[in-house]
């Protein structure tokens, strides 16, 4: 009887795994992060939402392969964006990284990374959009939207 029980828990695990996946998908497509920014001015809300929506496309085309769909990255190789202290505490440095790339040692959430993020060739408005997406996705929140002007001001 030992084996079947193992098999059963295995089955259960797979089912649960897949159900969770389905759920996440639904949440993502239904709410479009509106909860996160409910306390903002109406005008700003739509601006931010629009920017995040564009940013989401940029994210899947330019970032997801390394930082993964859940923003958790790969321990040791690609730092997380979800819950990243670097991203919350170093706003202009983060813009710099997305605009020009990043090589060499950095520490994110206490973990050392020494890898390469090559320059991605994004335009300033694309950088702003993807910044707004990563700063307001998963559990991340920010108080102030990233603007194109702010990105322009970050120089090499």
């Amino acid at each position: 009887m030992k084996n079947p029980i193992h098999l059963f828990s295995l089955t259960f695990f797979f089912f649960v795994g897949c159900i969770t996946l389905e759920k996440e998908k639904n949440i993502e497509s239904n709410s479009k992060n509106s909860i996160l920014i409910a306390d903002k001015q109406f005008q700003e809300k739509t601006e931010l939402q629009k920017s995040m929506q564009r940013g989401k496309n940029i994210y899947s085309g330019f970032c997801m392969q390394c930082h993964l769909p859940d923003g958790k990255g790969v321990p040791g190789n690609f730092p997380p964006l979800a819950g990243s202290d670097w991203l919350t505490e170093k706003r202009s440095e983060s813009i710099y990284v997305v605009k020009y790339g990043q090589t060499g040692e950095i520490i994110v959430n206490g973990v050392k990374y020494n890898n390469v993020m090559a320059p991605l060739g994004l335009s300033d408005d694309e950088v702003a959009d993807v910044m707004n997406y990563i700063m307001n996705s998963w559990e991340n929140t920010q108080n102030q939207m990233v603007t194109v002007e702010e990105v322009k001001a970050v120089k090499k």
């Binding site: 009887m1 079947p4 098999l7 059963f8 089955t11 797979f14 089912f15 795994g17 897949c18």
Partner: peptide, 18 residues
């Protein structure tokens, strides 16, 4: 029972996360 459980495993393999 044993057969039933293997059947469930097989189904979950091929449907949910095929």
């Amino acid at each position: 029972m044993k057969y039933f459980l293997s059947y469930v495993v097989a189904i979950s393999f091929f449907t949910s996360c095929a």
